[in-house]
């Protein structure tokens, strides 16, 4: 029987030694993650719904708002509202689909460094968020020009560059909350429900608690992330408000994200 073994080995020619391939650059991972966000059915329709809701919102302001409300601020606000929900959902799905759809089995064997993959996803999600806000503001500007022309009123540009910066920051933070919940929960429906609780239920609870408990009312600007973020939409933050945003963000965003990342690194991908 040893004869058979030797013969088998002889039959197989030694494969020429190959040089190790070049490592995968981070830029390539970002491209891959960008493509992956749009080449699924869910990803495609998510982007479509962002564009769709922006157009509907603009049209609604033109059709239904009184002439005096035909201002850039109002167009921007109308377009921004659906974004505050759709961008975090996009961020959530970019992470959770690897687990819920189990595509992570391939992703994390092709790139056996989960931290790099998650980082690439985060950078891409932030970039998409920033671009989306840019597009939304452009659609809003167009609406503002067309709307005021139809209504025959002067075009009002009442959003400052500083406000735009704050708007982008607020939306990116919001998107990062979704991303954090995606990393922490790693299940699509679970993370989306988590986002709804986080963004709509917790602030209400915080408000109710603040109404009854003075100590919470005093601490709220420091501990209520939603409250702290709300200041961003007003455009100008004092240094105290920045500190409050930082403190609340540390507790409600940075720490859970870190916990989630540790879990991602340690967990099994099945």
């Amino acid at each position: 029987m040893t004869a058979t073994t030797v013969e088998d080995l002889d039959r197989a020619p030694a494969r020429a030694a190959r040089t190790a391939p070049a490592p995968i650059p981070f830029s390539r991972l970002m491209t891959v993650e960008l493509v992956k966000m749009f080449n699924t059915r869910a990803g495609f329709w998510l982007i479509m719904s962002m564009a769709g809701t922006a157009l509907i919102a603009t049209a609604s302001v033109i059709l239904f708002a009184p002439d005096s409300a035909m201002t850039y601020d109002n167009f921007g606000a109308a377009i921004g509202v659906p974004m505050t929900l759709l961008l975090p959902v996009m961020a959530i799905l970019s992470v959770t689909s690897e687990w819920s759809q189990r595509s992570g089995l391939t992703t994390f064997t092709l790139v056996p460094h989960r931290g790099r993959v998650i980082r690439a996803k985060m950078v891409v999600a932030i970039a998409i968020g920033a671009v989306s806000i840019g597009v939304a503001l452009a659609i809003g500007a167009l609406g503002n020009i067309v709307g005021s022309a139809i209504a025959g009123v002067d075009t009002v540009w009442d959003i400052s560059a500083n406000q735009i910066t704050m708007l982008v920051l607020a939306n990116v933070l919001n998107l990062l909350i979704g991303f954090m919940l995606g990393v922490l929960i790693r299940n699509s429906p679970g993370a989306i429900v988590g986002f709804v609780v986080y963004s709509f239920v917790l602030p209400t609870l915080s408000m109710v608690l603040g109404n009854f408990q003075q100590w919470w009312e005093d601490l709220r600007p420091w501990l209520d992330f939603n409250w702290a973020q709300g200041e961003l939409y007003d455009g100008q933050l004092t240094s105290t408000q920045w500190a409050q945003l930082g403190t609340a963000g540390l507790i409600w965003l940075v720490v859970p994200l870190a916990v989630g990342l540790v879990m991602v690194m340690r967990s099994e991908v099945k």
Binding site: A20, P21, A22, I24, R41, Q101, R102, S103, L105, V111
Partner: peptide, 23 residues
């Protein structure tokens, strides 16, 4: 994990069902 580009050296198929259904 030390393979620089694992897909070029090792082909892996662990579960054929583990692919994104919407792609």
């Amino acid at each position: 994990a030390d393979l620089p580009n694992p897909g070029r050296e090792v082909g892996v198929l662990l579960d054929a069902s583990a692919q994104h259904a919407g792609r």
